[in-house]
């Protein structure tokens, strides 16, 4: 079995890379896929916290690379989903502790056992970024509707091309339809026009994300959350299904009534 290695990256920090990684991973695992998440943010790890697995860490990525343990010993099984595993980052080391070639070898080893290996990339364009993309064959870019985030995403796409990672796909995170409508926020079209890459999904700004992230439960498991629904759609698009983009408009009573009566959306 040779699984796919995906890297989730953005350039800018704080746009939701880790949350996205956790939710895509959990979503794929819920579909029955065998998934391994790698936290490549050595020294500033977060993925374990978002997944609520922090207290189970014994060995980490650096231990594996340095040969202190076998990969299997470092992998942590998720507490809710059977098929989801995490390879955590070291908190007390620095990015330079791992070299891109080592990451590539690690990804290739893991893809033998997993259908998906998803790498959570740190912010920035230095060593951590180079490590994270070294073993990947697909890239997912996360951005928010802010000029600075889009600018950094653009830079990242250029760097990915230089590393021969072509056709990355885009997730626009934390969009607020009302603000877009009023012209106070960049819209989806504005972002696509600049970045000119394929859209993988749009995640609306949603308070349930903050709650779920703090509780260590990926929002993708929450059926009522709109962000969770958006991540579900993204996961199915990664699987190759043709899922239409959901309407970002808040559904009022009237629209829901209309839909119920007319039988379409």
């Amino acid at each position: 079995m040779a699984g796919r290695v995906l890297v989730v990256t953005s350039g800018k920090g704080g746009v939701g890379k880790t949350t996205t990684t956790a939710n895509i991973g959990a979503g794929l695992a819920l579909l029955g896929r065998k998934v391994c998440l790698i936290d490549a943010d050595i020294g500033l790890r977060n993925l374990d916290v978002v997944l609520g697995l922090e207290n189970r860490i014994v060995y980490d990525l650096t231990d594996v690379v340095e040969g202190n343990c076998r990969v299997r010993q470092a992998l942590i099984k998720d507490k809710r989903t059977d098929n989801l595993y995490l390879l955590p980052a070291a908190q007390t080391k620095e990015k330079e502790a791992v070299a891109p070639e080592q990451m590539k070898a690690l990804c290739d080893e893991l893809r033998e056992d997993f259908e998906y290996v998803i790498v959570d990339c740190p912010a920035g364009i230095e060593r951590g970024f180079k490590n994270a993309i070294a073993g990947a064959d697909e890239a997912i870019i996360v951005t928010t509707p802010e000029v600075a985030a889009v600018r950094d995403a653009d830079r990242i796409i250029g760097l990915l091309e230089a590393s021969e990672l072509y056709e990355p796909r885009l997730i626009i995170n934390r969009i607020r339809p009302q603000m877009v409508r009023k012209g106070d926020m960049m819209g989806i079209e504005d972002i696509i026009e600049i970045l000119a890459i394929k859209l993988l999904g749009v995640v609306p700004d949603d308070e349930t994300i903050i709650v779920s992230t703090n509780k260590g439960e990926p929002v993708v498991m929450d059926k009522r959350s709109r962000a969770g629904q958006a991540y579900n759609n993204i996961v199915r698009r990664i699987e190759g299904l043709d899922v239409p983009f959901m309407s970002l408009e808040e559904e009022g009573l009237l629209t829901r009534l209309k839909r119920a009566l007319l039988g379409h959306s």
Partner: peptide
């Protein structure tokens, strides 16, 4: 190609870009 943020073209003659020149 499109020039993305951080990319730079420097040439003594004229330059024709078949694509966009993005901010940055």
């Amino acid at each position: 190609r499109t020039l993305r943020s951080g990319q730079r073209v420097h040439y003594p003659g004229s330059v024709v870009i078949l694509g966009d020149v993005n901010p940055g």
